[in-house]
């Protein structure tokens, strides 16, 4: 009885894991390529999901398009480029490097170099400030005496 209960509990998660079998390509190698491509493409309706993760209609259409092109023997790059040409840079979850996206890519470098520069400058200033004070004549005499003793 209890086993049956747990089996029933698990049933929905099992069907979810299988996904939508009618959409999948019969060739597992091609299907995994299609999934790889789809995971890099943004669902334009939900915007923060890939087309593989989204249940939006448009995402389903794009998944089907990707699979058709993969099945027709196109390369990954060609499939991605086909959709990129229609939907622009925003459809790529990994933004390409061009003049528009340059600030985006340059920002971490700028922040890191800025931080490093600030660190160096702070250290230099601290070093200049905290040098030991020069010895007074009395101290120097005492030091000479100490060194003589040893």
């Amino acid at each position: 009885m209890r086993a049956l209960f747990f089996a029933l509990l698990l049933a929905p998660s099992l069907t979810l894991a299988v996904g939508r079998p009618s959409e999948m390509l019969p060739d597992p190698a091609q299907e995994s390529r299609a999934q790889q491509i789809g995971r890099e493409l943004r669902c334009m309706v939900c915007q923060n999901q890939s087309i593989e993760d989204s249940e939006a209609d448009l995402a389903r259409d794009l998944r089907r398009l990707v699979r058709e092109r993969v099945a027709a023997g196109e390369s990954d790059v060609a499939v991605r480029e086909h959709i990129h040409a229609r939907y622009g840079d925003f459809v790529l979850l990994r933004p390409p490097f061009n003049w528009v996206t340059a600030p985006l890519w340059a920002l971490p470098v700028l922040v890191l170099t800025g931080g490093a520069l600030a660190l160096v400058m702070m250290r230099r200033r601290a070093a200049r400030r905290s040098g030991p004070a020069p010895l007074t004549p009395a101290e120097r005499a005492r030091l000479a005496k100490l060194e003589d003793e040893s």
Binding site: M44, V45, L58, D61, L65, I83, R86, G88
Partner: peptide, 13 residues
């Protein structure tokens, strides 16, 4: 009917 032309134009909805 299939939404294919929509994709050609980069349609969201």
């Amino acid at each position: 009917a299939e939404g294919r032309a929509g994709i050609e134009y980069g349609l969201y909805g």
